[in-house]
Nucleic acid binder design. Structure first.
Lengths: 117, 117
DNA sequence: TATAGTAGTTACCTAAAGGAAAGTGAAATT
DNA sequence: AATTTCACTTTCCTTTAGGTAACTACTATA
């Protein structure tokens, strides 16, 4: 009695989703992980593999990803000194998510182009 | 000859991923879809089911999602008039992505809390 | 008559994201 | 000696996201 109809609870799903979104937010983090994942390990190569990214943004995102323990910045003590970016093993846990993002994007583009035919 | 070593190509993955990110960007769109998906169909119920969302942001995101054909705003001609938000069938295609986001978030929280024990 | 609920809108503001362009310092190359 | 490469940094600026608070028009309820 005095029973109010309330909203359905979905926090068990929303909370972890938001935790994920907090880590991979923005346009650039997942693309950077993909680029390093296929073998780009130098700053300039990563930059050239991602259309539209500026060095400022790339530097900032690389720092964020390092702090989240998704990649490592490695200084190679040769002459001249080189910098190599490598994914941490933990970044592999993102693989299912990356495929889900990719698959949905492929399907979505199909849908959008079909609606113009 | 004159062959320069170039970056590895990963555009086939990055492009669709960015298409997806363009649709589901921000903190709120996926949580809103989850909330409606579990049965919240009224503005106020959706708002109360998502901690921290303001009516302004909710109204704006609902319009965006309607434009992307992920949900529908339905006017129920009773007295008083009611508004119901319903997911389009197309929103079901987001399910694997939502599970990927949820699972990674759960695992990530486990990792973060473990590192403090 | 007063209060509460529904579905928002409006105005104002801050912070973060991101783009453009140039610069930097060290080393290598021509 | 001049240019190029690498890995950024710096400055300046605009856009977008999002937060806060108040307000609206309508209806229902006490």
């Amino acid at each position: 009695m005095a029973q109010k109809k309330v909203h359905c609870d979905c926090l068990e799903t929303i909370k972890p989703v938001r935790d994920t979104l907090d880590v991979i937010n923005g346009k650039w983090k997942i693309p950077i992980i993909i680029s390093i994942g296929v073998g780009n390990d130098r700053f300039t190569d990563i930059q050239e593999s991602i259309p539209g990214i500026s060095p400022k943004v790339l530097a900032k995102e690389l720092k964020d990803l390092e702090q989240h323990q998704l990649l490592r910045r490695i200084i190679i003590e040769e002459y001249p000194v080189k910098i190599s970016y490598q994914l941490e093993e933990y970044a592999d846990t993102l693989t299912p998510l990356i495929y889900a993002l990719k698959d949905w994007g492929i399907n979505h583009r199909k849908k959008v182009t079909e609606s113009f035919s």
